[in-house]
Design a protein around this nucleic acid. Structure first.
Lengths: 217, 217
DNA sequence: TGGTCTACTGACCGCTCGTTCAGTGCCCTG
DNA sequence: CAGGGCACTGAACGAGCGGTCAGTAGACCA
């Protein structure tokens, strides 16, 4: 492969710093309140410069979103593959998620807004808000992946039969809520504690008699 | 008590129709994209008229929010009181929530945005967005209430010991996610099915061996 | 019926924010 | 060192918003 030219290096650096600034500003002020001026200042460039690298605000937000979420999903996929049983998989991806958000606290606000598209439900003709369409799709894909795994475990008889898609939503969004709780807290308990709580509730429920085979490490 | 004067009746009617319109518009376009003009048109009044009944946009949004959420919480409280064991309580409040959102689909977008305040995490000096402060507090109170009930059940030995606050968040947000899923769907399964799924997972987990005492009615 | 009062209206204002583009200065080449 | 190219700048622009207020029309009373 050819070495990167100086122009390419500079270009990548610029794109990266602008996206980085965008993430920080959005995290600080929220999606709607983050202005191009804010982002430009945070990145240490002029407002106009952003438009040399991104068509408009929507593209900047969407690209920023995508870059960050790809990192998260890479981590989760790795965790997913290392583990065997469903319980191990669950434990692994929860840990990956919690750790990712400890290292990237800024990202949580973008991530939290994934759950539902901004303007929908009947009138969609409006010009602006085709907000982060591809990320929304990635989110659904994530749910489907978990649902599929759950479905397979049901086939095998490892877990009870129920609606796997519903169960997947419940698990993922329940744990996302704890991610957000952790980010908002000044001082959180170790990740392992929350991972254990979720995993044990999902596998064995809250009743006193233990139904999961495992003991504390 | 004195009969309501004509002026009072008219005033209440106006307030109600404006709040109603606000809820529909926000549901359709999202919190940020809903303009005063939109709401006025939806309510069939002029933009200026809204300002006769609400100080500014913030107050309109907050009051609308409060009115709707009070209805929901009244339902949940009623359900809460009728039931005895924790499992029954859980089943009752889930059913109340699902039914409320079947009847008030428009409200879901306001409700979904409850989870986190708009601009926080470090710089909060900004003028505008002290968004729905009291509702945010109501939400936290809701979590605390469930956490307290869980804590008491732990004391009694009915359920395993774990962090009750964390567990409360997990249950409430997991079920909220299913509320949203239901609202977005064209055709949902009966509420009872989702209620049963959540309740059984929480009480008994997903493993094949049954740990909850109950059978299908 | 004429007069007053007031709930209501919608054109208007000031402002913010996304986007543009003529200008500027730095870097590279010959 | 001269000069052309280009990445970068930020003042300026226009769209769209929340909020205002002089004007209006209809209800009510004497």
């Amino acid at each position: 492969m050819p070495a990167k030219s100086k122009e390419e290096v500079v270009q990548e650096f610029r794109i990266h710093s602008i996206q980085d600034a965008a993430m920080r500003v959005i995290a600080r002020k929220g999606m709607a309140a983050a202005t191009m001026q804010d982002i430009a200042e945070e990145a240490g460039v002029a407002k106009g410069t952003i438009y040399l690298y991104f068509r408009d605000r929507d593209e900047l937000v969407e690209k920023t979103f995508e870059t960050a979420i790809n990192q998260l999903h890479k981590r989760i996929d790795e965790a997913w593959l290392t583990a065997g049983s469903f319980e191990e998989k669950l434990r692994a991806i929860l840990a990956a998620k919690f750790i990712f958000f400890r290292e990237n606290r800024e990202f949580f606000r973008l991530y939290a807004s994934l759950r539902l598209p901004e303007g929908t439900l009947s009138d969609e003709r409006r010009d602006r808000q085709r907000r982060s369409g591809s990320c929304q799709a990635q989110y659904r894909a994530r749910i489907d992946l978990m649902a599929q795994t759950l479905g397979e475990a049901m086939e095998r008889g490892d877990i009870r039969r129920m609606n796997p898609h519903r169960l997947a939503i419940f698990i993922i969004e329940g744990s996302n809520a704890l991610v957000i709780e952790r980010v908002m807290e000044d001082q959180s308990p170790p990740e392992a504690e929350d991972v254990e709580l979720i995993t044990s509730v999902i596998t064995g429920g809250i009743s006193t008699r233990k139904s999961s085979k495992r003991s504390t490490h």
